[in-house]
Design a protein around this nucleic acid. Structure first.
Lengths: 132, 132
DNA sequence: TCATCTAGGTGCAGGTTGCATATAGATGAA
DNA sequence: TTCATCTATATGCAACCTGCACCTAGATGA
């Protein structure tokens, strides 16, 4: 239910973490230069298989990474098909990925704090059920 | 850096999970009826201490829970201070909390898939460093 | 010639959220 | 009495994020 939309259901597909596509792209680019279309296909690693990521979001994130100095881009011809805008991660980009990693670890702690509260609460709740 | 805003830094404080305040409020309300101002204070359980949640968000979520039939509200006088709008979770609300729980567990899986990819990649990366 | 694939991109609308601000009753100190 | 402060709820706005629809255009092969 979270993420419903008027008329049609929004394709949120597990992307419940804000801007999660960004660290995924950073990690892929850390493995070597690449371009939008290829990155889109490699996102399967992160679970974007059933519900693939939207290409517009990817292109926008890549541009914003470049604007903030986390990557550089150049046009390159491939073996086939149209020219590609190939992105390379900068040193600042490496640092940014590390920052994202720490941020996501913090998110994980918050999540598990919630799980702990949930279990704790439900145990009390059920033991109260038995008493009454 | 994620979550920056023009001019000032946005207080995103690790709340990177979409609508995370909602399941927190649901869990608190599952423990018994309560009202906005009190809920705001009890959110500390979930790690909203250093950067407390914004009250406007809480009041909006409570209203939306009521609009969707997940809670009911009534005005009640307290021992002191102005009247309070007291919310009670409905049966549908219990189910909604359960749904949120499953959703967050899925989020956790996605998160750990990323961590696994990250560690995997960094190991390869470092072993390549040694070779060259 | 034309459909299809590859590749990159824009515009828009809907949803989420933090900040500023408004309102108002209750409380206690000056 | 006046006034600051606490308690309590609420609205408007702007920024941000994202999915969907749609567009352009080169390459490829039937």
């Amino acid at each position: 239910m979270p993420g419903r939309r008027r008329g049609r259901v929004q394709n949120r597909c597990g992307r419940r973490i804000n801007r999660f596509l960004e660290p995924c792209l950073l990690l892929l680019l850390h493995g070597g230069e690449s371009y939008g279309y290829e990155l889109l296909e490699n996102l399967g690693k992160f679970g974007f298989t059933e519900n693939p990521a939207d290409s517009s979001t990817i292109y926008r994130i890549l541009r914003s990474l470049e604007n903030r100095g986390f990557a550089t881009s150049r046009w390159a011809e491939g073996d086939s098909g149209p020219a590609r805008r190939v992105y390379t991660l900068s040193t600042a980009g490496d640092g940014y990925l590390l920052m994202w990693m720490r941020d996501l670890e913090e998110t994980d702690r918050i999540l598990h704090r919630f799980f702990s509260e949930y279990r704790n609460h439900m145990e009390l709740h059920h033991s109260n059920d038995k008493k009454t």
